[in-house]
């Protein structure tokens, strides 16, 4: 997790986005989004993600939108794309 130059958050999702990883991500997103910072989520490492992880991402996108912060998932891995597509969440998460 690094701070961007514009004080935004750059967060790398781990290989396995389980409930524990989702909780860590939620905490980091919450702080950044509440502060009105932009959030960049690196999804390139994700090999496995379930509902807990997708919920965090969906909530993060909705919250960032409410607060007019920018949020995006960069380099989504194939498993991440597949999980989002399966759940019908791709477009909500800005994924193809």
């Amino acid at each position: 997790m690094t701070r961007l130059k514009n004080a935004g958050l750059e967060f790398t999702l781990p290989e396995n986005v389980d409930r524990s990883a989702a909780a860590s991500a939620a905490a980091a997103f919450a702080i950044a989004i509440k502060a009105g910072e932009d959030v960049k989520i690196d999804g390139s490492k994700v090999k496995q993600i379930g509902q807990a992880g997708l919920q965090i991402l969906l909530s993060g996108f909705a919250s960032a939108n409410h607060r007019r912060s920018k949020i995006e998932i960069t380099q989504p891995s194939d498993p991440l794309n597949a999980a989002a597509k399966l759940a019908g969440a791709s477009l909500l998460l800005g994924l193809s």
């Binding site: 939620a26 997103f29 989004i33 509902q51 807990a52 997708l54 919920q55 909530s59 919250s63 409410h66």
Partner: peptide
């Protein structure tokens, strides 16, 4: 996803979808 809370209120053990 209408039941999803804001990111600072979400509980990762709970299901909202």
């Amino acid at each position: 996803v209408s039941a999803l809370p804001e990111i600072d209120m979400i509980e990762t053990d709970q299901s909202y979808l």
